[in-house]
Design a protein around this nucleic acid. Structure first.
Length: 1042
RNA sequence: GGGCCCGUAGCUCAGGUGGUUAGAGCGCGGUCCUGAUAAGACCGAGGUCGAUAGUUCGAGUCUAUCCGGGCCCA
């Protein structure tokens, strides 16, 4: 009937067998069939296959898989299309490294075409390993027909999306503060910047005096009159570590809520007054000073001051920020102006921890300055070129910025505008390639005007079901509320080319939305070329369009798109959508939006955002409904796993040693999904031992005895409500478990469900089976035995189904052997079976409480025994029991039998609440847990008491010896290698006391040890003999198989 | 510098809406039990629940500040 189950299981081998079975039976395919079932749509966040998959990939894939498997069992039809992310800077950097290229110039000399071919090759380098790992961990996903972001069809949809935004006026060109390497003449991405931080970098620290000159008409003139009222020249004192940015200064920022002091000091030309934050006066002002006045930062706003350097005088153009049309977004457009008056603005970023509380603002340098420039429509002065050299006709023009620092400081000093200079050491980024200090430099960039849709994004986010829920209004909600426009252009090579063509004669831009449109708009001599064109650079750059306005030649702008745009486009790009009608069809077919996605928390600014932003902008709604946001994987010591630390755990090591189920179970149950988690092979191994082997042993136990008795689940059906309390109890537990696991998976919380399963398996093994063992050994096939088989069978089959989403392999193995082997009509796989449904009628709350009480009192009783030095094999006469309340006392009658057996005590007596014995024991024990009272050993714990009568009568002693004998014979049977069903002869030699035990308990011993006869003497050939000591007697025991 | 998360035994983690003496597993020492078990039971050692202040009759739990770790953004 059932296949024999070895208790020494090799899980990795078992899993490989299951994988083969799934393959042979085409189970994955079958799980996706059934047109009448509602669709369950998973969006797979695409990985890049230019590196080996790590444990964090296993984590995300396991969480994707468990929900899909669960939904399949709940009657849904899962759709899981795999995908590959193939574009982006990390790919380019990898190839640059391989080719030994060090700058963009070198890439262009090498040739964009060849370079991009190398990129294309590298992104699929590890595909095979990804596919193998994915299959091995049991993640069911379609990897045969994945979406690939470098495909023309995928790129085309990216274009179409941009075109939708373009037509709605959501695309514009603006300034962006970018980390820039002046030697490589290239922007750095944030993660390149992160590669190059160095600590304790010395930079000049200068305090600069800006002469106050007046105030803007919009402000009240009071503060100006106040500060000027002392008859001294007044300077606003600002601090900077980058003197070279001073010629670009167009504003000073103050904290409107802070107090500022007007202090009188000795200047180079006599007394003068400085304005700076009150809190920093002591630290900054050198020499004697006295406070003339105290003002609020808000009083200073709109004061004006003299420029240190007038750009007009030194031949540098001046621009001013103008907000983009529509709502005020993060972007802004610059327009040329003739001149400007620098002024004081308020800034929430102003720090009172260092500097002077007055911050120098140069919008051309630094993102914060740029943002301030946008908000306050400041002037914009860019006096540095992309090589980092000062432009214009300044005395220090033509110098590299860091070299110009000295000249500028000297110049200001000569003019009496340098208050103080020193050296400041801080952490500063350097180009990771060439070690040149990175400059923050405002550059033009293309933007998506996402802030125009901010309210919509926030509203859509409210509709998303986040797990853990704090992400919704916390990290992600915060990001959306503080969102700025999305800068999508990259001055790079390997990416989706931005489909904007600009007319060389009239300067107009045109956004191309499809390949067909490209062909239609191409100048006649280029039309042919469009057929079969690789849409990547440099090929697409060669296509010249004809300007619809002036018929002039239009050329594509050189930039490519941010790779996050690619991945965020996948809901439509994976189907090559190029019209709103097709989007509608996806929606109707249930392919949009996704029911579920799951990635790690670092994707809040990545994929979670790009998905939401793109779908909100083109469809008005979110492209996903439910998310599990996962924490990071740390190493054994809680450090981030990284190549440089050498603490990466290779998932294959764990898969080969412990198996996929073990790694999955660990990831599901060890921590809540959103928390970061430590990971090591040791931790996974613990899961195997504590949970998986325990369950496996129950399973193996069941099969062993079911085989012996020829138990047939079809024939030997137990009644729905068995008479055995133990059976009714575990069935009650298992039905509770079904609801709990169902609820937790339905709520996208596998962790809670998994932990409940773990607790159940512990109860099943260490109480149900432990208490039921004798019922399986009994020789006759009576109703009670069948009930035990049937109950345990139900539990195991139910467990297999509950665990199928968690541990698909072990569940399959148990299901095949227990369920499918006896029922041809059962689904071919546990993953095609229906998820169990709880039967509320079988849930018996009082019975579960009673059993909990029985476990508790047993513990106390064992404690009492061990304190009294009475081993459990020795039967005792009486235990006195006290419970905490009447409802618990009411349970005693029903659990008496279990307690008597567990504790090997002849009688259990319940004490009334006011029994004097309890009061006496309490008093004698004091704070102690245990106390001896007369013949009794009492153990007290939080209102409970178990007191055992420790007096041993000769009869009890004899019975104890009988049990001891049985125990020893059993051990001998085992060491002799007998089967559990073998009949034996039992031989003994010893003193009269032993004779008396044999005489009194012979029948009992025969029954327990399957001895046909008990003989004085020793067994012949083939038997086993041992000389032993028992209770001070020298005895000889022997066994032989009949 | 900003946002979010975490901090409970040597390790991994539980501890709805505040309420007796803060729990489990692993590991360690001991005892016991064993016709499934590489298992299990019981005891012991091991905790200022990151710190401080507050709210409260009462705080691991609520509030504030700080410290440490992590992530994201500057």
């Amino acid at each position: 009937m059932f296949k024999k189950v070895n208790s020494r299981v090799n899980f990795p081998q078992l899993e490989k067998d299951v994988l083969r079975y799934w393959g042979e039976m085409d189970i994955v395919n079958k799980s996706e069939q059934g047109e009448d079932r509602p669709l369950f749509m998973l969006y797979e966040g695409p990985p890049t296959a230019n590196g080996s998959p790590g444990v964090h990939h296993v984590l995300a894939r396991a969480f994707k898989d468990i929900i899909c498997r669960y939904k399949t069992m709940k009657g849904y039809r899962p759709l899981r299309k795999g995908g590959w992310d193939t574009h982006g800077l990390p790919v380019e950097l990898e190839v640059e490294r391989e080719l030994g290229l060090k700058s963009k110039q070198q890439i262009e000399e090498y040739g964009i075409e060849r370079f991009n071919e190398k990129c294309r090759e590298s992104v699929f380098r590890y595909v095979k390993e990804w596919e193998e790992l994915t299959a091995r961990i049991g993640f069911w996903v379609d990897m045969k027909d994945p979406y690939v972001t470098l495909d023309n069809s995928y790129i085309e949809t990216g274009w179409w999306i941009l075109k939708q935004m373009w037509d709605k006026g959501l695309i514009y060109k603006g300034m962006k503060g970018t980390p820039h390497c002046p030697r490589c003449v290239s922007s750095l991405s944030s993660h390149e910047v992160a590669l190059g931080y160095e600590e304790n970098v010395p930079d000049p620290s200068v305090y600069v005096k800006f002469p106050l000159s007046g105030f803007e008409a919009t402000a009240s003139g009071n503060a100006y009159d106040r500060v000027m009222g002392h008859g001294l020249p007044v300077y606003l004192l600002a601090w900077t570590t980058t003197p070279w940015t001073l010629p670009g200064n167009t504003a000073l920022a103050v904290d409107p809520a802070a107090d500022y002091s007007l202090v009188e000091v000795d200047g180079p030309n006599g007394k003068e007054a400085l304005v700076l934050a009150q809190a920093l006066v002591d630290e900054v002002v050198k020499g004697p000073w006295k406070t003339l006045d105290t003002l609020k930062g808000s009083d200073l706003v709109a004061l004006t001051y003299d420029k240190l350097y007038d750009p007009g005088e030194f031949g540098v153009d001046v621009y001013q920020f103008r907000p983009p049309e529509g709502s005020g977004g993060g972007g802004a457009i610059l327009e040329a102006v003739d001149g400007f008056t620098p002024r004081v603005i308020d800034g929430d970023f102003v720090s009172l921890d260092e500097g002077t509380g007055i911050v120098h603002i140069a919008p051309a340098f630094g993102d914060e300055d740029l943002t301030a420039g946008r908000h306050s429509s400041l002037a914009f002065v860019q006096q540095v070129d992309l090589q980092g050299n000062i432009t214009g006709s300044f005395p220090f023009a033509g110098k590299f910025v860091k070299d110009a620092d000295q000249d500028i400081m000297a110049d200001l000093k000569g003019r009496g505008l340098l208050y103080h200079r020193g050296v400041y050491k801080h952490t500063y980024p350097f180009c990771w390639r060439c070690k040149t200090p990175v400059l923050y430099y405002a550059k033009e960039s293309w933007y998506i005007h996402t802030t125009a849709m901010k309210e919509r994004l926030i509203a859509n986010n409210r509709g998303i079901n986040w797990h853990p829920d704090y992400i919704k209004e916390g990290r992600f909600g915060e990001w959306l509320r503080n969102g700025v426009d999305w800068a999508i252009s990259r001055e790079r090579y390997w990416g989706t080319p931005i489909p904007f063509w600009q007319c060389e004669s009239c300067g107009e831009y045109h956004c191309v939305g499809t390949i067909a449109e490209l062909k239609a708009m191409a100048a006649p001599e280029y039309r042919e070329q469009v057929d079969g064109l690789d849409l990547h650079r440099p090929h697409v750059d060669e296509v010249v369009l004809e300007c619809p306005g002036c018929s002039g030649p239009m050329r594509r702008i050189p930039e490519v798109m941010d790779a996050w745009f690619d991945s965020g486009a996948m809901p439509v790009a994976q189907w090559n959508v190029t019209s709103q009608e097709e989007v509608e069809r996806l929606r109707k077919d249930g392919l949009f939006p996704a029911d579920y996605i799951s990635e790690a928390v670092d994707q809040t600014r990545g994929w979670f955002y790009s998905l939401l932003a793109i779908s909100t902008l083109i469809t008005g709604e979110s492209s996903y409904k439910n998310v599990i946001c996962l924490g990071l994987i740390l190493d054994e010591k809680g450090r981030k796993m990284s190549k440089s630390l050498g603490n990466i755990v290779d998932p294959w090591d764990v898969l080969n040693a412990q198996g996929a189920d073990a790694i999955r179970w660990y990831l599901f149950t060890a921590t809540r999904p959103g928390d970061s988690r430590r990971f090591s092979q040791k931790l996974v191994n613990e899961v195997v031992r504590r949970f998986m082997l325990t369950l496996w042993n129950v399973y193996s136990f069941f099969v062993t005895y079911a085989e012996i008795d020829g138990y047939d689940p079809n024939r030997d059906k137990a009644p729905d409500k068995p008479s055995s309390e133990l059976d009714r109890w575990i069935l009650s537990e298992v039905n509770c478990l079904i609801s709990q696991v169902d609820d937790s998976l339905d709520g996208y919380d596998p962790t809670t469900g998994g932990r409940r399963i773990q607790e159940f398996v512990d109860l099943l093994s260490n109480w149900y089976v432990r208490r039921s063992r004798r019922r399986f050994w009994k020789s006759e096939n009576d109703q009670d035995k069948l009930s035990a088989y049937s109950t345990l069978y139900t539990c195991l089959v139910t467990l297999a189904k509950l665990m199928a989403p968690y541990t698909p392999f072990m569940a399959e193995e148990m299901y095949q052997n227990l369920a499918r082997s006896v029922d041809d009509k059962a689904p071919e796989s546990v993953h095609l079976a229906a998820f169990p449904v709880a039967d509320a009628d079988l849930v018996d709350q009082p019975l579960m409480e009673a059993t909990r009480l029985a476990k508790r009192l047993s513990s106390l009783g064992r404690d009492a025994r061990s304190r009294a030095g009475k081993k459990v094999r020795l039967p005792l006469r009486l235990a006195l029991v006290r419970t905490r309340d009447a409802s618990e006392s009411g349970h005693i009658e029903s659990i008496k039998g279990q307690l008597m057996e567990e504790l090997n005590i002849k009688e259990i007596r319940l004490l009334t609440p006011d029994d004097p014995f309890y009061a006496e024991a309490m008093k004698a024990a004091g704070a102690a847990r245990s106390v001896a009272v007369g013949d009794y050993q009492a153990v007290l714990d939080s209102g409970y008491m178990v007191a055992i009568d420790t007096s041993v009568t000769p009869q009890l002693a004899q019975e104890g010896m009988a049990r001891e004998l049985v125990h020893r014979i059993q051990n001998m049977r085992r060491s002799a290698g007998f089967e559990v069903t073998d009949r034996i002869h039992f031989y003994y030699q010893g003193p009269d006391d032993l004779e008396r035990v044999i005489a009194g308990y012979g029948d009992y011993i025969r029954l327990e040890t399957l001895s046909e006869e008990i003989r004085r003497g020793q067994p012949g050939e083939g038997g086993r003999v041992e000389a032993q000591k028992m209770e001070g007697m020298d005895i000889t025991l022997g066994v032989s198989r009949v």
